[in-house]
Design a protein around this nucleic acid. Structure first.
Lengths: 212, 212
DNA sequence: AAGCCCATCTTGACACCGTTCAGATCCGTG
DNA sequence: CACGGATCTGAACGGTGTCAAGATGGGCTT
């Protein structure tokens, strides 16, 4: 059963890390068909396996989605870290982080959607994404300290500022693709300029204007 | 068939404005069971009608959702207008609009979710909400002009500022319910204070701080 | 090296979903 | 009063999430 596919080296079990294969299949489907095309059966089909097989690796469909979301937050963190590392000036760094956030959401809209659906419905996952030592949130927090948005002893106010930035970035990420902005984008000579313009009105991202 | 329910006056057809009844049933389900419980069959069941009946009033499930979204945007506009009318100081008015927006989303989370799912997928509906003369967007725009965020001849910049405000409000509306903010909310003595604190860091809503 | 055990995968089934279509029902109109 | 068309029902199709029971085969014990 199921051609052994000889050139993939030794496989621990019947399939060989089906969990990994399922996650890859799922992200492939998300990027290809969008969130609407993501069904457990479709994922199993894409991975070349029976519809019930995933239940040995994920308790639920929601647990599959949660795993996808975790991977997504990991990639987002990586992308933001790379962007932040490339920008030395603190002011510009905050702006770059905001821009990177929106760019990620634009590049993988369906995955981004799953990420925030999970954040809403579950309690476990977002903590992992937000509080992780290396998470994107702590990168933002450090950058916000660097621009002096709040003195280090005003922990509460700093937290509020970071949350505000996160909310603004999230809102922009979800709305940047809306059709009614197309005219304005064209008038401004491209989405990049549009994005920078909007960010420039969002306090902490003000410096983005110079990156247009 | 189907007890005539004699005390509802004359009904034009078999049921009597089933379209209205379906929309009511749908919003009832959304408020009770959340977005996950919203199925065409469930709506029909709630309205006491066969599963195929809705197809004589809505081409699609998506068309039902779109109708719900339109109603939602209407209610949102009404609520924002009422709030804006009650606040005379321009600065406070902008803050009040932002707060009202978030409050609406918090009061009807599932409906709000449907509203923005439709905004994303369709092109027709959001225009109706944004461009409507009396829409919430124009209320925001007028308030933004009043606080002098951009001189009237800088139409583009004004538009960008309004979009920025809208994005920030949307992001906050979607994230305000996240569990990881619970600790901070408690520390600040309530969600109201938390909300005002976050808004105070979002440029155009700065005045919200005084409303805590 | 033989054999057992259990994780893994498959098959088949159930309930629910969106959607369609032929037919029953009932309203206003001629 | 009969007709026509809008409205609703019933049954059906393919797709979905989920579960229970059986087949399979790799790794551990002896």
């Amino acid at each position: 059963m199921k051609a052994p596919c000889p050139f993939t080296g030794p496989r621990p079990y019947h399939h060989g890390d089906l969990r990994r294969a399922l996650l890859d299949a799922a992200t492939r489907i998300l990027d290809r068909d969008g969130q609407g095309g993501l069904s457990l059966r479709a994922v199993a089909r894409e991975a070349g396996v029976s519809p019930a097989a995933p239940y040995h690796h994920f308790k639920d469909k929601s647990e599959l989605m949660l795993a996808i979301a975790e991977e997504g937050f990991g990639q987002l963190s990586d992308y933001i870290r790379r962007t932040a590392d490339m920008t030395v000036m603190p002011m510009e760094r905050v702006a770059a982080i905001g821009l990177a956030y929106v760019e990620f959401a634009k590049a993988h809209p369906a995955v981004y959607r799953v990420m925030y659906d999970c954040s809403r419905d579950s309690d476990a996952m977002p903590d992992k994404a937000h509080n992780a030592e290396e998470g994107a949130y702590s990168l933002l927090k450090r950058a916000m300290i660097d621009i002096g948005v709040a003195s280090p002893d005003q922990e509460t106010d700093l937290e509020l500022a970071c949350i505000a930035a996160w909310c603004a970035a999230h809102g922009l990420a979800e709305m940047v693709g809306f059709k009614q902005f197309d005219a304005l984008k064209a008038e401004m000579g491209g989405e990049k300029a549009f994005l920078a313009g909007v960010l420039s009105h969002l306090g902490m991202f003000g410096q983005a204007r110079s990156r247009a």
